[in-house]
């Protein structure tokens, strides 16, 4: 085991944590905005997959990675709007609609990918994003190369966390989001449009999920496979609870999960005995479930989460 611990503070290990945490941070922030406005989005797993596919396809066909990112973000926003249409405008069950959005988006991703790329033995890949070292900062020992020699999308995630906190806690729109998530009746009396605010929050959340998907296929793996998301969306939902619906804590939760995930990857690589690597893949998920058991008792969800708002009901 000591060999495993020796590797922890290596540059490569830290860099791996940052890379694993990036899509989770985007996804977790996206889910957080949605839930703070009172809308659980279980569509996240499928939305990430569809965005991963859409971004990859756009980048692959156009040759422009940033166009791919844009397409992924727009796709995410569109799917967010779809989820909001069902859950906010029509007031349908957030649980079941979310599963429906995930099944629909995943199915559409599989279908379109097969239609566009056909069946190939080796999945087509793209020349993905390259790390961009930040002058001076990347020269800091250990931390520099791990954190400041990364993809632009990683820097975007690092900036997104304080930005999300600022938007949520320091802007009028953020106040509206928190109001419609805690007490929509009061928000309505104060002249805040509950429906519009929830729509905006779920759409913004979808766009962030799109960034998460784009990172997977355009920076991390540079290819699309049907298992490219493999539960990261579900994990993000758990991380929101773990992070108590706060941007900073959520980002911290994403880093913690990424640490466990990077650790199990190292354990796979170090080839502990003859244990199949799948046994290690279970660990982050078990960790998340156990962590939720510890955190959920004290976790206070937004009061109006899961509750549709209808003005005429008193």
């Amino acid at each position: 085991m000591s060999a495993v611990f020796e590797q922890i503070f290596q540059v490569g290990f830290l860099a791996a944590i940052i890379r694993i945490a990036t899509p989770l941070a985007f996804a977790t922030l996206g889910e957080m905005f949605s839930e703070r406005a009172g809308v659980l989005n279980l569509g996240i797993e499928g939305i990430m997959l569809l965005c991963a596919m859409a971004g990859f396809t756009a980048a692959s066909l156009s040759g422009s990675l940033w166009l791919g990112v844009l397409v992924a973000v727009l796709t995410g926003a569109l799917m967010g709007a779809l989820h909001a249409l069902f859950t906010v405008a029509l007031g349908l069950s957030q649980h079941v609609c979310g599963i429906g959005v995930t099944l629909f988006s995943s199915g559409l991703a599989y279908f379109l990918y097969r239609l566009i790329f056909g069946q190939q033995s080796v999945p087509p890949s793209i020349d993905g994003f390259k790390p961009v070292p930040i002058p001076l900062l990347s020269d800091i020992p250990v931390l520099g190369p791990a954190v400041f020699n990364q993809f632009t999308l990683v820097y975007l995630a690092i900036v997104a966390v304080p930005l999300a906190a600022f938007v949520l806690y320091r802007t009028p729109w953020g106040l509206s989001v928190r109001m419609v998530g805690e007490n929509p009746r009061a928000a309505d009396s104060a002249g805040v449009s509950v429906i519009a605010t929830r729509f905006q929050a779920v759409i913004l959340g979808g766009a962030l999920m799109g960034l998460a998907g784009a990172f997977l296929t355009m920076a991390q793996f540079n290819a699309f496979t049907f298992g490219v998301v493999s539960g990261r969306g579900w994990v993000a939902i758990a991380l929101v609870v773990f992070g108590r619906w706060d941007p900073w804590r959520s980002a911290g939760a994403a880093l913690l999960f990424a640490f466990v995930d990077a650790l199990q990857l190292r354990m796979q690589a170090s080839g502990l005995g003859h244990i199949p690597y799948e046994a290690f893949l279970m660990l982050p998920f078990i960790f998340t479930i156990v962590a939720m058991a510890f955190m959920s008792r004290n976790a206070v969800a937004p009061s109006a989460l899961l509750k549709p708002f209808r003005r005429e009901e008193r």
């Binding site: 493999s230 539960g231 609870v241 998920f285 479930i289 939720m292 058991a293 959920s296």
Partner: peptide
């Protein structure tokens, strides 16, 4: 026992 959301835990358990 722990007020853990059953949706999330049952989904995560699928992966496990």
């Amino acid at each position: 026992k722990f007020k853990v959301d059953d949706v999330v835990s049952s989904l995560l358990l699928n992966s496990v």
